[in-house]
Each structure stands twice: as C-alpha cells, then as structure tokens.
Amino acid sequence: MATENVEQIMENEIENMAEERKAPVQKFEVPDPVVEVNDLNLYYDTKQALKNVYMDIPKNKATAFIGPSGCGKSTLLRCFNRLNDLVDAARVEGEVLIDGDDIYDPSVDITELRRRVGMVFQKSNPFPKSIYENVAYGARISGENRTSVLDEIVEKSLKGAALWDEVRDRLKESALGMSGGQMQRLCIARAIAVEPEVLLMDEPCSALDPIATGKIEDLIAQLKENYTIVIVTHNMQQASRVSDYTVFMYLGEIIEYNSTETIFLNPTNKQTEDYVSGKFG
C-alpha cells in the first residue's frame, strides 16, 4: 500500500516535471549520432509505454539504458529494429532515424532494417542447428550460398565474438551443446555476421555467471570499435564498466541522459542519484 502511494506521488511529480520541460526540448548532445529519436510515443492498446522520448545515440560508442523493471528500456530498444511490430497491440508515434532515414516510414523494408540493426537477447537463443549454421544463418537468408564466402563469414564472426578458438574444431556440432556463456557469444557472433551498424543488447548477461559475464563485457569493449552498441542492463556496475553514455529511464520517460561518468558520479536529477546509489529500484 505504502509503496503504491509513493509510486503514485512520484508519477505525479514526473508528470509535472514533464509538463514543465515540454516546451523547449533539450536533447542531450552527443558526437556523431547514428540513431536519432524524436518525440517517440509507444502505446500498448491504451497504456502508454514510452512518453515523448527524444534522444541521440552516438556512433561507435556503447550506450546503456538503465532503470527499474517495466520502465520501457527494452521497449525502446525494440523500437530500433521494429521488433515491437510483432506485438499486435503496440502502436508507435514519432520518428526514429537511423543514418537519417526514418525507419517507421511505410516504404522501409523491415528485413533490410533488421540486417542493419542486430540484436542479442536476454536469454541466449541459438537455433537448433550446428554452430556453423547458426552463424551462417543471416548470410544464408540474404541469399549467400557460396561455401567459401560462408566459411570466411563464420570464421570472422566467431573470431569477432572471441569464440573461434573454443569452437573451431566442432563447428558442425549442435549449438545447443555449448555452455551458457558460449551460447550467448554465439548469438553475438550470429548478430555481427550480417555486419550491422547498430548492435542492440537486451540484458545480455542476466542469465550468465560472473566469469561468462566478464568475457562478454570484454567483448563489448572490443566490439564498440566497429559497432554502435546499445545495451539494456539491470546491473549498474555493468553499465558503469562497459558504457560510454548512460540513459536513466523511469515509467516510460527519459529522466537523465549523460556520459556514464556524470550519471554515476554527478547526476543532476535526484531520482537518478537515488537509483544509481541503490536507494530505490
């Protein structure tokens, strides 16, 4: 009961704040933005899950989305590759630009978009195929069938995901026989095999042990040299370790967006400070 009241009060407060800010939208300036989000609203039936989101995501950096459960981090992430389209009840307003193209334009080819925006899921989801076929899948559905090209793609992607040395001798074995951490890195390899511009990661380490998590975090540090990474995480330490920029979200709104250092050491918003210091969330 008490917590409900607190939430209610907070919500009201945020609504008031949003009202105040509405007139001049002050986007947080980032260098070289790849993804630009302007006035994005998302509804599940009548429930609004994202409210007036304005943000830019910088190229070849890691940007972390943090916030309590249900705040819309994953929903926002799934707007970038239009995976929300799979939910019948979801309705999107506003625009998301990737390299200046509006991805919600009716003329956009969704499959083409999803090749440009790769995704790694919370639960590792290798296909029930061999390791090789998992990595080659993206290339195959784009029509690539030459063995030599596929071999090259598989090797390059597995190396890119720091998995090559562990699996080079068992490429033809089922991917389901790997350890959890290996499977997640396989999913990363599969995603980078189609050479996307942006790599979305939805809590990629939440089901992994600390050692496997460490490996993935090292991998993210390497990957951001070539890819723009957007990572959703519940783990504050992880956000501070891997990301260059951090977005704090609450109840479908962006509360604060700044460099990771600022968010964790010197947040301007009281709620952000409470969240990153563990007082709520």
């Binding site: 590759n81 995976l83 799979l86 499959t111 083409e112 978009l113 999803r114 090749r115 790769g118 995704m119 899921f121 639960k123 989801n125 290798p126 296909f127 029930p128 899948y137 993206g138 559905i141 784009s142 999913c187 599969r190 995603a191 189609v194």
Partner: peptide, 10 residues
C-alpha cells in the same frame, strides 16, 4: 526467443 532471434537477423 528463437523466432525473435531469426526475425532480428532479417
């Protein structure tokens, strides 16, 4: 998850 994994690859 597996279906989404495939869809997310285009």
């Amino acid at each position: 998850e597996i279906r989404h994994g495939s869809l997310a690859l285009g």
